[in-house]
Amino acid sequence: MSEYAISIASNMGMIAFVALSAYVVLVVGEISFGQQAYFGIGAYVSGMATAMWGWPFGFALVLGSCVAAIAAFAVGALTLRLRGLYFAIATLCFAEMIRLGLNSIHVQVEIDGEPVGPDGAEGFGDIRWMFEHDVTTLEYMFIIYALLGAVLVVLLLVERSNLGAVIRMIGQDPLLARSQGIDVGTCKLLVIVFSGMIAGLGGCLYAHFATYIEPNVFNVMLGVHALAYGLIGGLGTALGPIIGVVLDIGFLEGVRAIQGYRMIAFGGLVAILLIIMPRGILDEVRIHHIKRWLRRQ
C-alpha cells in the first residue's frame, strides 16, 4: 500500500469519527455546527498527555475522549432548551469559542531542551508518539480502523436497542415522545455527550497521526463537512456517514483526475443530494425497504 493510499485511508477513518458524531446529533433531531470543537479538544488534550506528560497512548485516548465528552455535557446542558436554528447557532458559537481559545493557549514544557506543547496560533508540534514507538503509518491506520469499527459496532448495537428507537422517536417528534413517557432532555443530553466522546476520540487519533495540530484545523468547515457526510450518506443507519466520507475523501480527493476541483464537486454533490434525497442515500425509508427485502430472502 502506497503512503498516499495510507494517508487517504487514514484521513477517511479519522474524519469518519467526527462525521459519526454529527450523525448521532442529527438523528436526535438537532443540527450541530460544533462537532469540530470536540475533535479539537480530543486532539489537544491527548497530544498534551503523550507529548508533554509522557502518558501511554491508550490513556491519552481515554483522557482526550472524556474531556471532549465533558465539554459536550456542558454544551448540551446549556443548550437543552434550544431547538433548531438556535441550537445550531449555539453549537457554532461554542466551537468558535474553543478555536479562538486554543489560539491563545500557551502551555509549554521543556523536553530535551526544546519547548513542547500548544503555542497559540503557532500550533502544537512534536506529537511524536508514532516515531518514538516505531509505529508505521500502516500500523496506525489499523489502529484507526479498529477503533472506528468498535465505535460503529456500538452505534449499530444502540440502533437495535430500545435506546436507538427512543433516539429516533425524539428526532422525529419530541412532543410525541415526551407524551409517551420519554425523558427527552436526558436522552438528548446523553446523545450529545456520546457524540462529543466519538469526535474527541477521532481528534486524539488525528493529533498523533498528523504530529502537528493548530487551532485553524478545527474550523467551521470541518463541522460543515461532518454534517454533510451524514446528510449525503443517509440518516437511516450509522453506515450512512461512512458512505459520505468515502464519497468525499475516498473518491473526490482520492481520484487524482478531479484534484483541485474537490470542493466544487463536493458542494454540487451535497446540493443535488439534498434536493433528490433530503435525508441521504441510506435514509430511514430505504433502510426499511432493505430490511424487508433481506427478511424475505
Binding site: S161, N162, A165, M169, A177, Q180, G181
Partner: peptide
C-alpha cells in the same frame, strides 16, 4: 402525531418504551 418514518408496529411498540420499568438495553 405519529412517528412517520417508523413502521406501524414500530409505532405501537415505541409507545411502550417510555413506560415505567422499561430499560434501554436488553
Amino acid at each position: 402525531r405519529l412517528f412517520q418514518r417508523m413502521t406501524v408496529i414500530g409505532n405501537v411498540e415505541a409507545a411502550q418504551y417510555g413506560m415505567p420499568g422499561n430499560v434501554f438495553f436488553r
